[in-house]
Write a protein that binds this DNA or RNA. Structure first.
Length: 757
DNA sequence: CGTCAAGCCCTTTTT
DNA sequence: GGGCTTGACG
């Protein structure tokens, strides 16, 4: 056994490495050397004679997987990291794609499926709703997709949901779900959730295939287990059933993805599930100062029901946490960039600094402040590169070339650049498709049979079909990059995209960047390059891109994206009630707990310096509002904090917020109220006015506001006259209720005496 | 068929 | 303040 494997590991980490047989639960706090333990564990397995291909490691991002691959390569002194000497490592989604590309035909689907992103999903859903004559104002595509996503995260098929559907409304959702799946199938497409779900289905329905994978992957490792959803849990359980060598690693305090179905119980109940599981806690922190750890602990300690855990470090010489107050959101951004520059002057490189915020919308402020101060920056998230229209257009061409069954891709590009094939023509063709029961591509290839389309238009369609066919033929002998270059020339994309504006210029640059990405695949065969590229487009995460962005720059990103990363200097902006915690979470205990975990994750990214910022007033959606400072700041012990402010008046808010008890159990502000307030009283620009406003906050309509926040479609309510019923729709203050008596009524929440059950 | 202007509803968070 | 849909017009 090489010394390297155990070199520099503490006792607990060693246990985590050596305990390889049977189920293992590793509770690993922030900065506890978790990735290190995991990589050494895998290297240890391999040194003990386990074949690399018998090991599966599921990580949260591709970046984490790549990092681990590199580290293992070094540990084992492998010569060529690209060789098959490494285990399969990747995200749930990429592992499932791998499984499905190989075996999905066992459950009657085509292995050339495309993966639909959020954008594609929405388009498809719009089509479903239009077909079913449902007004998109009544049921938004996103809402419908959110419901379906919930079902899929719970691994429920439409049939299974249908069995539980008791209300009309649920019945309708099931119909939508069914139709949506049918269309996906018709397009030979899977959405993100399907990747997991179809893998589970494959394993359940074809035991022989499951057994093959069980016998291959005998040692299973799952990182960030606190963020797995039920479908992922099922997948792992099925794989682990036979050999039971399952190691899960995570930190319940860092569970921040409940909104996409993550179920914290998976990790909390692991030991109940696997009774003989070994349990290992990594509590020593190698990242942060004691001050940062203590502060973070004060935040997370307020969450109930966590396993006992106390992080510690030998770094007791740290700075205090800086809490900085500014006048408004612009001053906040200036302050953030200023403090970045100050630290830069003291030798902290830009790459070691980060600004974190709750919502993507906040990024623009920091972007502008950086530009003004000439500080190079990079933004993660927001308008994603692969989601940009011009990039998606080119990708859609490739999809259409690869898989003409992909109707969505065809529709996207049939008139890009303009071929004078407009909506009326498309509508005619689609009508023809459903009448004749043929798919779009077939219809296009037989366009001459459609007399109701004028001949010139038919000719243009035929030209389009010829174009796609021509490039289909090129796939086998041209690399994806060359093929795309030729395509761009052929369709005269440059002229179409450029319009003498700077936006046009940047659109063309984005396409250039796409060509750069394609170069990565030069080493592969033409066919492989094509498929690998499309896969990357579908599955890269935002954080994955940090790898390729080596230049010296300040990073701007959302709090959700920062998990797993670390920086010397961390700035968390917008620490205000209604911003962070987010307004939608203010009146929901579970969501507040998650916001708290999010704060905990953000704070524990910091190695040396942590700055928390809030603004006394902030303009949002075009009007100005004053928020209380975040309740999380109240939880910081004064002796750990250095307060700063840009205003002499500032003491007021501080004093009020930290020395007086809060009004009631919950904050009196929050955007739920604020939104209302800003309409009634648009200008509340100063902290003192805001306080005044807060004091009369417990009015009658406060109660109704609470009800408004507790209510959603499907909520059960009680009315003194009509009895009990179910909310069928909610639009602002207005709700429709289907009472159990059969009556339907419409109410204004601000007036009606409704009670949530 | 394409463009432009007015009006709409917003915004969590992401693989 | 912004992105998207809708409706009128060239």
């Amino acid at each position: 056994m090489s010394d390297l494997i155990f070199d520099g590991l503490n006792a607990e980490q060693k246990r985590a490495v050596e305990t390889v047989d049977g189920p293992v639960l590793i509770l690993a706090g922030a900065g506890s050397g978790k990735t290190r333990a995991l990589t050494h564990r895998i290297a240890y397995l391999i040194e003990r004679g386990v074949e690399p291909w018998q090991i599966l490691a599921v990580t949260f991002t591709n970046k984490a997987a790549n990092e681990m691959k590199n580290r293992i390569t070094n540990l084992l002194k492998l010569s060529d990291p690209n060789q098959k000497q490494l285990p399969v490592m990747g995200t749930f989604h990429s592992v499932c794609v791998r499984i499905l590309r190989r075996d999905i035909e066992h459950i009657g689907r085509n292995r050339d499926f495309v993966i639909y992103d959020k954008d594609d999903q929405e388009r498809l859903m719009k089509e479903v709703l239009r077909e079913m004559n449902i007004d998109v104002k009544e049921l938004k595509p996103r809402t419908a997709l959110a419901h379906i996503g919930r079902f899929k995260n719970e691994a429920l098929s439409a049939e299974e949901v249908s069995a539980q559907a008791t209300t009309d409304w649920m019945g309708r959702v099931v119909k939508i779900y069914n139709r949506y799946q049918a269309l996906l199938r018709q397009h030979n497409a899977l959405d993100f959730d399907d990747l997991i779900l179809e893998s589970v289905r494959l394993f359940r329905e074809v035991p022989a295939v499951l057994e093959r994978y069980q016998n291959t992957w005998r040692y299973l490792n799952v990182d960030e287990y606190q963020d797995t959803n039920h479908a992922q849990y099922l997948l792992i359980s099925l794989l682990a059933e036979k050999h039971r060598n399952l190691c899960v690693i995570g930190d319940p305090d860092q569970s921040i993805y409940a909104f996409r179905g993550a179920d914290i119980r998976n990790i909390l109940e692991f030991q109940r599930e696997y009774k003989q599981a070994a349990s290992i806690k990594l509590e020593r922190n190698y990242r942060s100062t004691q001050q940062i750890l203590d502060a973070a602990d004060c935040i997370i300690a307020k969450n109930p029901g966590r396993p006992q855990k106390k992080m510690w470090t030998e770094r007791v010489d740290g700075e205090k946490i800086i809490v900085q107050e500014t006048g408004d959101e612009k001053a906040e951004a200036r302050e953030a960039v200023q403090s970045v520059m100050d630290r830069m002057a003291h030798g902290i490189r830009l790459n070691e600094q980060v600004v974190l915020y709750r919502t993507n919308a906040q990024s623009r402020l920091f972007e502008e402040a950086c530009m003004k101060a000439s500080v190079p920056y990079r933004i993660l998230g927001g308008v994603k590169f692969y989601a940009r229209a011009e990039v998606k257009d080119i990708v859609a061409y490739l999809h259409a070339i690869h898989n003409p069954q992909d109707a969505l891709a065809l529709l996207r590009i049939i008139n890009v650049p303009s071929r004078k094939i407009g909506e009326t023509t498309i509508a005619k063709i689609q009508a023809w498709c459903s009448a004749e029961q043929i798919d779009l591509w077939t219809a296009l290839t037989q366009i001459d049979g459609m007399q109701e389309i004028p001949e010139p238009t038919r000719n243009r369609i035929a030209e389009f079909v010829a174009l796609i066919r021509k490039f289909r033929d090129k796939r086998s002998h041209m690399h994806v990059g060359e093929l795309t270059k030729e395509l761009l020339e052929e369709i005269k994309m440059e002229a179409w995209v450029k319009d003498d504006t700077t936006e046009g210029e940047s659109r063309w640059q984005n396409i250039g960047e796409l060509l750069t990405v394609m170069q990565k695949y030069q080493g592969l065969t033409p066919e492989e390059s094509f498929v690998s590229f499309l896969e990357e487009v579908a599955l890269v995460s935002e954080v994955d891109k940090l790898d390729t962005m080596q230049s010296e720059a300040l990073t701007l990103m959302t709090l959700h994206l920062c998990k797993g990363l670390e920086f010397k200097h961390v700035i968390i902006a917008g620490c205000e009630e209604g911003i962070f915690p987010h307004s939608n979470a203010l009146f929901d205990t579970e969501q507040l707990e998650e916001e708290r975990r999010l704060m905990y994750v953000g704070m524990t990214r910091a190695k040396d310096i942590l700055c928390l910022l809030f603004a006394r007033s902030r303009s949002l959606w075009g009007s100005v509002q004053a928020n209380d400072m975040s309740r999380f700041l109240d939880d910081l012990p004064p002796e750990l904090v250095e307060r700063k402010s840009d205003d002499v008046m500032s003491g007021v808010l501080w004093k009020f917020s930290s020395s007086e008890p809060r009004i009631g159990a919950r904050s009196a502000t929050g955007a739920g109220r604020v939104e209302k307030r800003s309409k009634l009283q648009p200008y509340r620009q100063h902290a003192d006015l805001s306080i005044e406003f807060n004091q009369d906050a417990l009015s009658r309509d406060d109660m109704n506001q609470d009800i408004g926040n507790d209510l959603a479609e499907g909520s059960r309510i009680r009315h003194p006259v009509f009895g009990e019923g179910t909310v069928t729709s909610k639009r602002g203050d207005i709700v429709d209720v289907q009472f159990d008596s059969g009556e339907k009524k419409r109410f204004a929440l601000s007036i009606a005496p409704l009670e949530v059950m």
